[in-house]
């Protein structure tokens, strides 16, 4: 603590009673160039940058509501996972032959481990006094190389991802919200016999005997399509569903489409 001749304290505390610091800004005329005080001179400029940044930020949140997919369903085995965008390069790296399968440890642990380790130890790997990037070619080159490969890998994973299927596979349905319409399934109907018969083998495999849908396939009960749209989907596929799966005749397809389109809740 402060001690010395002539020191006085406030009461029995250790707070100085005389020779206190004056509440006055420092004199900056002695400093080189246009040095200025942090408060309030520089902070005002920082906050002006911050205010512009905040406007952009808020506009982003309003323009793009944050995404939410359907609730997690661990039994869904067909979901193609995708990490947050800043892990995409790592995700892409793991797709390459020498970074996956038996070499998984290289892609998952060794490469990222070396990258983080090197980043952590940069001050001890690059010890010279030079600070300009052009005067220390090796560190600069390594960093640019790492940057380029991260950008390249991220780009590759984005162009190779099936965004349409990804959007469809996570959609929130009425079922998730507890709004499943009550639809009665007439298993004696001609349409159902086609669906469950030889012609519809590939229908029932994915959409299930109760038309309840499954892994990759949506629920058919309570769909919102017209008969024409259903026929169109059966012929040409949609999302994860491939085209040309139906093995029956055009008349049977028509009956099936009308049957599926009729699976709507009673008003």
């Amino acid at each position: 603590m402060h001690r010395g001749k002539g020191m006085k304290f406030v009461g029995d505390s250790r707070i100085k009673a005389n020779n206190r610091m004056v509440n006055m800004p420092k004199d900056y005329s002695e400093y080189p160039g246009k040095t200025e005080a942090f408060w309030p001179d520089f902070l005002l400029k920082e906050w002006m940058v911050g205010a512009v940044f905040l406007i952009g930020y808020l506009l982003l949140t309003v323009a793009h509501p944050s995404p939410l997919e359907g609730p997690a369903d661990p039994t869904n085995a067909s979901y193609i996972p995708l990490p947050d965008w800043y892990f995409l390069f790592l995700y892409q790296l793991l797709k390459y032959t020498y970074a996956s399968g038996p070499y998984n440890v290289i892609g998952a642990i060794i490469v990222p481990g070396i990258a983080i380790g090197a980043l952590l130890l940069v001050p001890f790997l690059d010890k010279g006094p030079e600070r300009r990037p052009s005067k220390r070619p090796l560190p600069t080159a390594f960093m640019l190389l790492a940057l380029a490969s991260m950008i390249y890998l991220t780009w590759e994973s984005v162009v190779n991802h099936d965004w349409e299927a990804a959007k469809a596979q996570g959609e929130i349905t009425d079922e998730h919200l507890g709004l499943v319409p009550e639809v009665e399934l007439d298993k004696e109907a001609e349409g159902y016999l086609i669906y469950s018969g030889e012609q519809g083998k590939s229908c029932i495999a994915c959409h299930g005997t109760e038309m309840e849908g499954g892994g990759a396939a949506p629920r058919l009960l309570g769909n919102e399509l017209t008969a024409e749209e259903v026929a169109e989907v059966i012929k040409n596929g949609r999302g994860a569903m491939p085209s040309g799966q139906f093995a029956g005749t055009d008349e049977e397809l028509q009956v099936l489409a009308e049957f599926i389109a009729s699976l709507k809740p009673e008003e």
Partner: peptide, 27 residues
């Protein structure tokens, strides 16, 4: 569970191959 994208395979699902499991999604 199909090892391709996780669709469901069927025994003899393809009439051309009656003694094989078949995945309708991508053949």
């Amino acid at each position: 569970v199909c090892k391709h994208l996780g669709c469901t395979v069927n025994w003899a699902g393809d009439s051309a191959h009656p003694d094989q499991f078949f995945c309708a999604c991508h053949g």
